[in-house]
Design a protein around this nucleic acid. Structure first.
Length: 571
DNA sequence: ATGCACTGCGCC
DNA sequence: AAAGGGCGCAGTGCAT
């Protein structure tokens, strides 16, 4: 049984080609033609655990999903791994497609990555040098040979990492990132249960009935706009226009610095209250209203596209539908199918726990060894004031210096020197133009050329350089934490996915599956009778992630888990 | 008509 | 004196 198999689907039709490999990526025997790729893949998975090697999940796995009875166990996603390796090797942002990696290997001109479909620069068809399949291989190149060659080279680059611990962690990152590719493709395929009728009822309550004319302002929103106009003297203006709003308020003698809602909330005038309400409702209408439902949530499922590694910190991004910004109020519409339940689990206070584990600060680790970290922190260092403890720690992690936070930071520095030293060292590295890395070795982007110009000129050109340096310090300070939290979350996803696939079920249609993932929170859609088992699996996966990513640490990463019908009932 | 910068706000 | 990290998306207003 080959431990790895390179896989290339035929661009048209159900077939493909397979090439068994050893762990170093060396071919074991000749390639095989598979007239039915899904059947061949399924048969290979029955024989034993395979790590599938492919150019990218969206081209190799997504088309296969509808035809697979079971989900694949493991993969090595060349595009994602290429990006991790390039950053690790100090070549952040170099093209990462199969064709680009292959061209680098052969010393040929490297094709740029294609812009994402749907993005502004996306303009297919003018590319004659490379095939328009996003792999960016030149016409005539053998995709399977390229996959095999690039994979072997990636394995060589991974093996070349000198430090044993760093190499092991980076390999874990490669496996976890690749597992993320599986999860993302599966979640896009399965979709998040979405009750259009409930969504519609919520919108109608908040905004009034759906306007007959698309784009028209719903009744309650129009009423609010009219009230607002009256409150400001009756002259018509567009409440969506910042400049017109500022002018309308100024005409009544109210000087606003901006139209931000936190500023409006401090203005003692009826119009300010109305405008805040208008903005809240208008946002729901424009961002998650009927047009959104038509575009993204049809057939009982919300189907966004997830972008693994879309954020430099390793967090996921999404394309379309604002998947990672679903307003809390609309979570009412996320309801399990009849006979099914949602298991919703989120990591409590993930980032401060990550800081405690990263820095190995004994004192902070003690506060992170159990339940409420902020409570424990408050009891130890802030005379029981939980708000202060939370504010101070968040400020330390974000690089905040404003407000009354100075004394809190001083307390933290005194009590938790290792933890504060850790983030401050990361900030200094960033201010000096260096790069930092997550626990598993995801490396942050280097400063831009503009940044270097600006900071080098700082002494002569006033404060802009210094301000820019401090901004980069805040970025690297936060990066080490946010990216290490993303490491942990990816490990959690991978472990949870494996555990879900191992649960005994009557058939594929009865299998619990991940339907949502948002930085530190997962949602599993499961047949009701399996919900307890799923909850146990999530808890076990969280502890497994802790051990994998942070090893022997007293810090715990507890989950808040709820088994519910409706997502909105989870909190 | 289309692109871009900017503002503002939803989520973590 | 002020100084909070990361995103996606929609709307305005100006430039082309």
């Amino acid at each position: 049984m080959a431990p790895r198999i390179a896989l290339v689907p035929d661009p048209h039709g159900p077939g493909g080609r397979l090439q068994p490999l050893d762990d170093a990526g060396t071919p074991l025997g000749p390639p095989a033609e598979a007239p039915d790729l899904a059947a061949a893949v399924t048969a290979a998975e029955r024989d034993g655990t395979v790590r599938w090697v492919w150019a990218a999940a969206d081209s190799a796995y997504a088309p296969l999903l509808p035809r697979l009875p079971d989900r694949l166990a493991r993969c090595h996603d060349l595009r994602l791994v290429e990006a991790l390796l390039l950053a690790h090797e100090g070549r952040f942002g170099a093209p990462r497609s199969l064709g680009a990696a292959w061209a680098r290997l052969r010393g040929l001109p490297v094709p740029p990555d294609l812009p994402e479909p749907g993005s502004a620069e996306s303009d297919d068809g003018q590319d004659t040098l490379f095939a328009p399949d996003r792999l960016q291989l030149p016409p005539g190149a053998d995709p399977l040979a390229a996959v095999v060659a690039v994979h072997a080279e990636q394995q060589r680059r991974l093996a070349a990492i000198q430090d044993d611990g760093a190499r092991a962690r980076f390999r874990l990152l490669v496996a976890a990132e690749s597992a993320g590719a599986l999860v993302a493709a599966e979640m896009a395929y399965d979709g998040l249960p979405w009750r259009a009728d409930i969504h519609d009822r919520l919108l109608t309550e908040l905004l009034g009935p759906r306007p007959g004319v698309p784009g028209a302002r719903p009744k309650l929103l129009a009423d609010l706009a009219a009230e607002l106009r009256q409150a400001l003297g009756g002259r018509p203006f567009n409440p969506d226009s910042h400049t017109q709003v500022l002018r309308a308020f100024a005409d009544r003698g109210i000087q606003l610095g901006s139209t931000r809602s936190w500023e409006l909330k401090e203005v003692n005038h009826p119009a300010a209250r109305l405008l805040v309400r208008y903005k809240e409702l208008s946002r729901i209408h424009t961002a998650h209203g009927w047009a959104w439902q038509d575009a993204w949530a049809r057939g009982g499922r919300f189907r966004p596209e997830y972008v693994v590694g879309g954020v430099v910190s390793g967090r996921w991004a999404s394309r379309g539908g604002g998947a990672l910004q679903i307003p809390r109020i609309l979570r009412r519409a996320v309801v399990a199918d009849p006979g099914w339940l949602l298991v919703v689990a989120d990591a409590a206070q993930l980032e401060p726990r990550v800081l405690a584990a990263l820095s190995q600060d004994a004192g902070l680790a003690r506060t992170a060894a159990g339940g409420d970290l902020y409570e424990a922190l408050a009891a130890t260092a802030f005379h029981g004031d939980r708000d202060k403890a939370k504010l101070g720690l968040l400020g330390a992690m974000y690089g905040q210096t404003s407000g009354d936070i100075g004394p809190l930071l001083n307390t933290l520095r005194h009590r938790y020197p290792a933890a504060m030293g850790y983030v401050e060292a990361a900030a200094r590295t960033g201010e000096d133009g260096g790069v930092v890395a997550s626990r598993l070795g995801r490396v942050c982007p280097p400063p831009s050329a503009d940044w270097l110009d600006l900071t080098e000129a700082a002494e002569t050109a006033g404060d802009a350089g210094g301000r820019s340096a401090r901004a980069r310090g805040r970025f690297t300070r936060n990066f080490v934490i946010q990216a290490s939290a993303a490491d942990w979350a990816l490990a959690l996803l991978a472990a949870l996915r494996r555990r879900l696939n191992a649960l005994p079920v009557a058939g594929p249609a009865e299998r619990p599956h991940l339907v949502f993932f948002q930085h530190d929170e997962v949602v599993v859609h499961t047949p009701a009778n399996l919900a307890d088992g799923v909850a146990d699996a999530v808890a076990a996966a969280a502890d497994e992630a802790r051990l994998l990513v942070f090893g022997d640490t007293p810090v715990r990463f507890p989950l808040t888990t709820a088994v519910v019908d409706c997502y909105a009932d989870a909190k």
